[in-house]
């Protein structure tokens, strides 16, 4: 466990990496005693600093939602980070790759909350009741520390959140079977990854139920109008400037972006 001073220091290092577009050494190396609770507190300090500088929390992201990713990071549960309002791009956007340090792209669904939702004991159907829309969304993840990373490095680094691109067709939670949303990710015309939303813990609302119960422990919840990235159902694809990405969600439409 770390002192509050070290936690603040960790957040400052991450802010510096973000500002300078230069990764810092892993916090798990700088602070070998770091635990998961410390990592979330570092993320809180990072967010406080960004909010003080004018950003607004627009929602949350959930990571490590697939069993493969959890096994790879020796975790038995997902992790979460904050989506800030300066990280949004629209369908068709030309995104500067230089905004990121080591960008990778993931295919997801985003939930738009129609009601406040707080734990404990929230289940999938509570999430569905409180959800106004579900919409295709891409997430750019980024690493503000060196790799390889411990799970504490990822959590402190806002769960690797970089940017969000929302597009395609918004649906209400019962318009489609949310377990069966398939997506095909093409990079420069070649299909690199495909996936089905059941890959997110069996149901994309499952991660959100987990998130709400987890937020309850720190005294918060989800608010009406907030967006939640429900977790990736493909492996991340490395991005470089010049890439053209097209993701086809079948009946839910498509999202296309280019990196410049």
């Amino acid at each position: 466990m770390l002192s509050e001073e070290d936690r603040r220091k960790g957040a400052e290092l991450l802010l510096q990496a973000e500002r300078e577009r230069k990764p810092i050494p892993q916090l798990s190396k700088t602070f070998p005693d770091i635990e998961i609770e410390d990592a979330y507190r570092i993320q809180d300090y990072w967010a406080q600093a960004r909010i003080a500088a004018g950003a607004r929390v627009a929602g949350h992201k959930i990571g490590l939602t697939s069993r493969a990713m959890q096994l790879a990071s020796k975790m038995t549960e997902p992790d979460y980070g904050r989506i800030l309002d300066d990280a949004f791009y629209n369908d068709g956007a030309r995104i500067p790759a230089s905004r990121f340090i080591k960008p990778r792209l993931e295919v997801e669904l985003a939930f738009i909350m129609g009601e406040d939702l707080a734990g404990p004991g929230v289940r999938i159907y509570d999430v569905l009741r409180a959800t106004e829309f579900v919409v295709p969304a891409l997430e750019v993840i980024d690493y503000r520390t060196e790799v390889p990373r411990a799970i504490t490095d990822t959590i402190a680094d806002n769960a690797a959140f970089g940017s969000i691109v929302v597009g395609g067709r918004p649906v209400r939670p019962f318009d489609v079977d949310l377990r069966w949303v398939g997506a095909t990710l093409s990079q420069n015309g070649i299909i690199e990854e495909t996936g089905v939303s059941a890959g997110i813990m069996g149901h994309p609302a499952a991660g959100i139920a987990w998130l709400v119960n987890k937020l309850h422990v720190v005294g918060t919840g989800l608010e009406k109008g907030q967006i939640v990235l429900a977790g990736s159902f493909t492996r991340p694809v490395d991005i470089t400037a010049g890439d053209i990405i097209q993701v086809d969600y079948g009946p839910l439409g498509a999202i296309g972006v280019s990196f410049i």
Partner: peptide, 19 residues
């Protein structure tokens, strides 16, 4: 075509026919 592969009840892999 959307496909989900479960091992002992948990989804471990999925994909779309276009793969």
């Amino acid at each position: 075509l959307n496909v989900v592969l479960e091992k002992n009840g948990s989804v471990v892999a999925e994909g779309v026919g276009a793969t």
